[in-house]
Simulated assay, not measured.
Amino acid sequence: MLKKLNLRQKFTILLIGILVVGLSLSGLVLSALLRQNATNEIASKALTLIDTMTSVREYTITQITPELSDELDTKFMPQTVAAYSAREVFENLRKRPDYRDFFYKEAAINPTNLRDKADSFETKILERFRKEKNLNQVNGFRSLPGGDIFYIARPLSISQESCLQCHSTPDAAPKTMIDRFGAVSGFGWHLNEIVAAQIVSLPASKVIEKAQQSSLMIVGLVSTIFIAVIFLVNVFLNRQVIIPLKRITRVAEEVSTGHLDVDFDQISNDEIGNLAKAFKRMKLSLEMAMKRIRRSQGGNTGGTAGH
């Protein structure tokens, strides 16, 4: 099949083959790199959200709770609870398009509010934080019935004595809080103890989607550049190789039919130019041979006429 194609068509097929094979091989590597890059970018955003929620917690503990602590004797105010403030602020943040796919949870084994109860997967994360004291964060993917999610978690510890007012013993906690949440969960905490894990998560499809968008953009850009290269190579090949070869072929055909008045023009010093130079020498040799033949024939004719 290739024997029936001209030189330009063969080069085009070769370059397209290189493009297809190159994109196929690099696509696998590129996909993994872009997915890792997307994961790192989203993880960085999630860590910023965790830092923000930590700041909200500290603000609540240091400035809100002291101001409203006297009111807790007559009415429980969830606004004095750091976990509640962080959750509410995050829910308001989720109303913005850039954060609507993110979820926040302070997963605890022994929470005051059962909404924050850690499941088996979150419990393993929390236990790992307790065992590995130097571990500051973990992230990865987990499977849920609704689909895979990407998560990132940081340990949450009791850093201030004021927190133990509500979480040391039921007797020390405000009565209004006991009336609302009961005296079973959320007690027995100690200062500097890791009691929960701050977890930010989002659907894994968002990570994959972000990687795919980057991958498509890069593949499209590379393909466009390579198509432009194929076009330029064809233009160069046509001007520097095909047209000179056609000219040499046409002149050679005329010489072969006896038209020795045509000439091979050497228009370059490359291999095509050397080919033209070789044909030119061949034409000169042919002309010299033809002249010798004519002289020989002329001499033979004269000798015959003398007899």
Rank of each mutant, 00 (worst) to 15 (best):
A173L: 03
T52K: 05
K246T: 05
V29N: 08
L68A: 08
F11I: 13
K75G: 01
S159D: 15
G273M: 12
Q36C: 03
T65L: 15
L275P: 06
G146Y: 15
S143F: 03
E132V: 05
V200I: 14
V29Y: 14
E271Y: 13
V262L: 03
I42R: 15
Q160P: 03
K95D: 01
N269K: 10
M290F: 12
V262M: 06
D116R: 02
I248K: 07
G186N: 00
V29L: 12
A228L: 13
I293N: 06
R281V: 00
T48Q: 13
H307C: 06
T65D: 14
L156N: 03
T169Y: 08
E254I: 01
K246M: 06
N37A: 09
I230R: 09
Q137N: 11
P203C: 01
R295Y: 08
P97L: 00
V219K: 08
C163L: 01
A107N: 01
T52V: 01
T48A: 12
T80F: 03
I152G: 05
A32H: 15
E58T: 09
E122L: 05
D261G: 09
E91Q: 10
A172T: 10
D261S: 10
T54C: 02
H190C: 01
G188N: 06
R35W: 04
G298N: 14
R115L: 12
P66C: 07
Q63D: 04
K75I: 07
L164I: 02
S223R: 04
E106R: 15
L286R: 00
S44Y: 15
G186D: 07
R180P: 06
N274W: 08
P145G: 09
E58D: 05
N110K: 01
N269M: 02
A276W: 01
E193K: 06
A46M: 15
G303N: 12
Y59C: 02
D270P: 04
G302A: 14
S201F: 04
A204K: 09
M290W: 08
A86D: 05
F141S: 02
W189F: 15
R142C: 03
G146K: 14
S162T: 13
T123D: 10
F264Y: 02
G220R: 03
L28S: 09
S285E: 00
K75D: 05
F236G: 04
I16W: 11
K4Q: 11
V255P: 01
I267P: 02
R295L: 10
Q79T: 09
K246Q: 11
R239P: 01
N300M: 11
R128S: 13
E91P: 01
E127R: 15
F141A: 05
T304A: 14
S214K: 11
A197P: 07
Q297F: 12
L156A: 08
I230P: 09
N274G: 05
A32Q: 15
D116Y: 14
L221K: 13
Q198K: 08
